[in-house]
Computed example of a mutant assay.
Amino acid sequence: MLLAIEQGNTNTLFAVHDGETWIAQWRAATDPSRTADEYAVWLSQLLNMAGLQFGVLDAAIISSVVPQSIFNLRNLARRYLHVEPLVIGENADLGIEVRIHKPSEAGADRLVNAIGAHIVYSGDLIVIDSGTATTLDVVAADGGLEGCAIAPGINLSMEALHTAAAKLPRIAIQRPGHVIGKDTVESMQAGVFWGYIALIEGLVARIKAEWGKPMTVIGTGGVASLFHGATLAIDHFDPDLTIRGLLEIHRRNTAAGT
């Protein structure tokens, strides 16, 4: 069985694949100081609750945008699964071209998303990942990563409003019924939510115009569900994009014998 670890700046996903389907998934807050042993204690309890144990896991793949965490995640696989993990950006062969000026600067999450999208959707793509940052990646019809637009994530923007403005409270993100708010909370929710919809719609329109060919737009990421039904700019919402990409990378590397 495969243990796939997808680590963002805010949350870390641990998922188990039995060769046919994903049988378990868990999330933890991302903490760069968490050691391999601490991960193991937490994960072993969740595995037991699912009727599993470390002994059934015989492969691991790691995607992380937090470099200081990779050491401990790799040690988790080595020490408790007794396997050498595939690590995106290090020893994993992706099988795609990264057509940006400095390929090493492409985040692991962006690379994995490109693969996860390409194996399901045909043609040229825009992959919108809404998390701590909002990224809009252009994936060519052959699977190559062409470039990206990056903006602050919606939660980050809301937190910045609260931090920088003394009278603005910390509030939860939700879709308001109106653009014109009648009180402070409603006005903040309207400005940030509909402002992000406008950001997405505007960037998608400009990317399509610059690309000059038809493109399919896929939304994914921790807060992408907030935008479901709020804009016609996103053609598909796909919450499993990243772990699908991790599974495909593992299969490619296993088939290649690496």
Rank of each mutant, 00 (worst) to 15 (best):
N11R: 14
G8F: 09
A60D: 02
I5T: 06
G89Q: 06
A40Y: 07
N11D: 09
S63Y: 00
D235T: 07
G107W: 09
L57F: 13
A92H: 07
I180E: 11
A230K: 08
P103N: 10
D109C: 00
L168W: 11
E20F: 14
Q174I: 04
F227A: 03
R99D: 13
E90W: 00
W26C: 02
N113D: 15
A165E: 02
D58W: 03
T12M: 02
Y196L: 03
I70V: 13
V98L: 08
Q68S: 14
A140G: 14
F71H: 13
W22L: 09
L52D: 08
R170D: 01
P169T: 09
S63E: 00
A224Y: 05
H82Y: 04
S157Y: 00
D58H: 10
A255P: 00
D129N: 10
S69K: 07
D238A: 01
E210R: 09
G95E: 08
L46R: 15
A36L: 08
S130N: 10
S157P: 03
N253Y: 06
T163E: 12
W22P: 03
I197A: 01
I218P: 10
G222A: 10
A133L: 03
G177W: 03
V87M: 11
I200P: 14
W42L: 14
P152K: 08
A160Y: 03
G131N: 01
F14S: 03
I119Q: 13
A60F: 04
H118D: 12
G245Y: 05
H228P: 01
R34V: 08
G19R: 01
G51H: 12
Q68N: 15
G107P: 11
R79W: 11
T163C: 07
A172N: 11
Q189V: 05
L43Q: 01
A164C: 11
L246F: 13
S187V: 04
I61P: 05
N253E: 06
Q53Y: 12
M158I: 13
E90D: 13
T220S: 10
P32M: 04
A36P: 06
V16T: 07
P214W: 05
A106W: 05
L86S: 07
A92G: 13
V204K: 08
T220H: 00
G202P: 12
V223N: 11
I88D: 11
S104R: 06
L13A: 15
L156M: 15
D93S: 14
Y80N: 02
I96Y: 06
T231N: 02
Q53T: 12
I119L: 14
L94W: 09
G195H: 10
E20P: 01
V98R: 08
Q45T: 08
G51F: 08
S104T: 08
E97F: 09
H162F: 07
G195L: 09
V112P: 07
V138N: 00
D37F: 03
V138C: 04
G123Y: 13
T132P: 04
